[in-house]
């Protein structure tokens, strides 16, 4: 049973996590973010929302006949991994957990596993 702040702390405790953010997908607003990251949280939240929306739209067109429901989204760049996990909550949302991981120090399988367990404790 996690609160928003404890959830963020748990996400940051994933090995290799560089910064983390909780984003309200409807409005593209940063609900909470790890403060030491030095990025503009509002802008990056809005941009991540657009990325997730574009992915959903794109997938909806590539998988005709299927209803697309994203569990998580992974983007790997030359500098690191970006993990996004949309969560269904009581309030419409979805609430998106975002974490940026160090390329060398992180373990993707572990990170995904930890995100899954965190999200199961954040929602009922």
């Amino acid at each position: 049973m996690l609160g928003i702040d404890t959830c963020l702390a748990e996400v940051m405790s994933i090995p290799g996590a560089l910064d983390a953010m909780l984003v309200d997908h409807t409005s593209g607003m940063a609900v909470a973010f790890s403060s030491d990251s030095g990025v503009d949280a509002d802008r990056s939240a809005a941009a991540l929302t657009e990325a997730l929306r574009a992915t959903t739209d794109g997938l909806a067109r590539t998988c005709p006949g299927d209803v697309v429901r994203i569990d998580d989204m992974l983007i790997t760049t030359d500098k690191g991994h970006h993990l996004l996990r949309p969560l269904e909550t009581l309030f419409e949302g979805p609430l998106v957990i975002y974490v940026r991981l160090d390329l060398e120090r992180s373990n993707l399988a572990l990170a995904r596993h930890r995100l899954r367990s965190i999200s199961s404790r954040l929602t009922t």
């Binding site: 404890t6 909550t89 009581l90 929602t123």
Partner: peptide, 10 residues
Amino acid sequence: SITPGELQYA
């Protein structure tokens, strides 16, 4: 029936 995080978010 609701977690603290969900209530905060709501």
